[in-house]
């Protein structure tokens, strides 16, 4: 299933190139007024994809100049994983990201707000984790029950490189997908690495690839 998704993702990235090859007329991006607010549907689907996880992520972006958009994203992640014989792990936290997107696309239609963009984000996360009822297995020594990871308040900072598309499917309504390479620049300081860093991903990795799937609405004012 992951290979099929990867193929479709690659095809999606090539679609703007294929579409643009059909018509040589180019129009500058429309000067989008107001702000576009969105919600990440992939975060809402977390409980279905990963048992024990739930979260949400929202974004706000605005056209600031020519092909540049300022963007802020923020969200929340809660992890509660329990195995009656081995562990009960809990994590909860918030994150925020700020950055700039640059539109690479010259549309085939006048007054089009579709985007193919590249961007950069600075992200930060504030969260806590703990675990109890841990049984440490061992292949050589006896297994040890009754262990715990004490609660700790943690922070993390990272940089993201983003590539994505946003298509105006109905007037002022957008569907978009983005792919991100995330580089951890400040690790959480704890003797036990967190399982997940909200907004970033796997707590033991310095580099993570992620994906978002947004539905957005442009609020005019």
């Amino acid at each position: 299933m992951r290979k099929i998704s990867g193929f479709i993702i690659s095809a999606l990235l090539l679609l703007p190139v294929w579409c643009s090859a059909q018509d040589t007329t180019r129009y500058p991006i429309n000067d989008m007024k107001g702000v576009r607010v969105g919600i990440d549907l992939s975060k809402l689907a977390l409980p279905v994809i990963y048992s024990g996880r739930k979260g949400f992520e929202v974004s706000v972006d605005a056209h600031i100049k020519k092909n540049f958009f300022a963007i802020a994203e923020g969200g929340w992640l809660n992890v509660d994983l329990k195995n009656d014989t081995a562990f009960h792990y809990k994590s909860n936290g918030y994150y925020g990201k700020f950055g700039i997107d640059y539109n690479l696309l010259k549309s085939r239609r006048p007054y089009s707000n579709d985007l193919l963009y590249a961007g950069v984000r600075y992200g930060m996360s504030f969260f806590s984790h703990e675990a109890d009822d841990i049984t440490i297995p061992s292949q050589y020594w006896p297994a040890v029950p009754g262990q715990s990871i004490p609660g700790a308040d943690l922070t993390a900072h990272w940089i993201e490189l983003v590539m994505g598309v946003k298509a105006e499917v109905l007037k002022n309504f957008y569907l978009g997908v983005s792919f991100r390479g995330k580089f951890l620049i400040a690790k959480p300081k704890d003797t036990s690495n967190p399982y997940q860093i909200p907004g970033f991903g796997k707590g033991t990795s310095n580099f993570v690839i992620g994906m978002n799937y947004y539905v957005s609405y442009n609020i005019h004012f």
Binding site: M1, R2, I4, S5, I8, I9, A11, L12, L15, P16, C19, L41, S42, A45, V48, I49, Y50, S112, D114, V165, A167, E168, V169, L175, G176, V177, M211, Y213
Partner: peptide, 19 residues
């Protein structure tokens, strides 16, 4: 872009299937 928007809807369904 109509093709793209339909493809994005399909991708959402596929995302739910990766576990």
């Amino acid at each position: 872009m109509k093709i793209l928007s339909h493809a994005l809807k399909v991708l959402l369904v596929l995302m739910v299937c990766s576990c």
